[in-house]
Simulated scan of single mutants.
Amino acid sequence: MRSLEDEKLAACCNGFLATIKSLWKDHYSDSKHRIDNYELIDIVVPKQINNKDCGFHMIMHAQYWDGRSVSHFNENDMSNIRKILTYKWLKYEENDAA
């Protein structure tokens, strides 16, 4: 629902990034991969329009992320996505308590 234009979110993200860079230096100082110049960017993804779908957005992005591009779904799809995922979870074969 927010972007890096939100000061509190930007401060939180910058704190995470600084911590990751510090830990990288501490634990991977011998690595040939440098992350000192990494910076935060806003990735254009579908944004939720309510306060209840954040978990479903996160699941969709995590499930379909290929390391380079993000999933593209329409906010109007969220009702069906909630139904499909809930059905899959309820019908999952290892959920049988018998």
Score class of each variant (00 low, 15 high):
residue 33 H to A: 05
residue 33 H to V: 01
residue 35 I to Q: 04
residue 36 D to H: 03
residue 37 N to G: 01
residue 38 Y to N: 04
residue 38 Y to S: 04
residue 40 L to P: 01
residue 41 I to T: 12
residue 41 I to R: 15
residue 42 D to Y: 11
residue 43 I to K: 15
residue 44 V to T: 12
residue 44 V to S: 12
residue 45 V to E: 13
residue 46 P to V: 00
residue 47 K to D: 06
residue 47 K to H: 10
residue 47 K to E: 09
residue 48 Q to W: 10
residue 50 N to P: 00
residue 51 N to V: 09
residue 51 N to D: 15
residue 52 K to Y: 15
residue 54 C to K: 06
residue 54 C to F: 09
residue 55 G to E: 03
residue 55 G to K: 05
residue 56 F to K: 08
residue 57 H to P: 10
residue 57 H to I: 03
residue 57 H to K: 04
residue 57 H to S: 08
residue 58 M to T: 15
residue 58 M to P: 07
residue 59 I to N: 07
residue 59 I to F: 14
residue 61 H to K: 07
residue 61 H to P: 06
residue 62 A to N: 14
residue 62 A to C: 15
residue 62 A to G: 12
residue 63 Q to S: 08
residue 63 Q to Y: 10
residue 65 W to H: 14
residue 65 W to Y: 15
residue 66 D to N: 14
residue 66 D to K: 04
residue 70 V to G: 11
residue 71 S to D: 08
residue 72 H to F: 08
residue 72 H to S: 07
residue 74 N to R: 02
residue 75 E to M: 10
residue 75 E to Q: 09
residue 76 N to M: 02
residue 76 N to P: 01
residue 76 N to L: 05
residue 76 N to E: 12
residue 77 D to S: 07
residue 77 D to H: 08
residue 78 M to A: 08
residue 79 S to F: 10
residue 80 N to F: 00
residue 81 I to W: 04
residue 85 L to V: 13
residue 86 T to D: 11
residue 89 W to T: 11
residue 91 K to I: 01
residue 91 K to Y: 06
residue 91 K to D: 06
residue 91 K to R: 06
residue 91 K to F: 07
residue 92 Y to L: 02
residue 92 Y to D: 02
residue 93 E to G: 03
residue 93 E to P: 00
residue 94 E to W: 05
residue 94 E to T: 03
residue 95 N to Q: 08
residue 95 N to P: 08
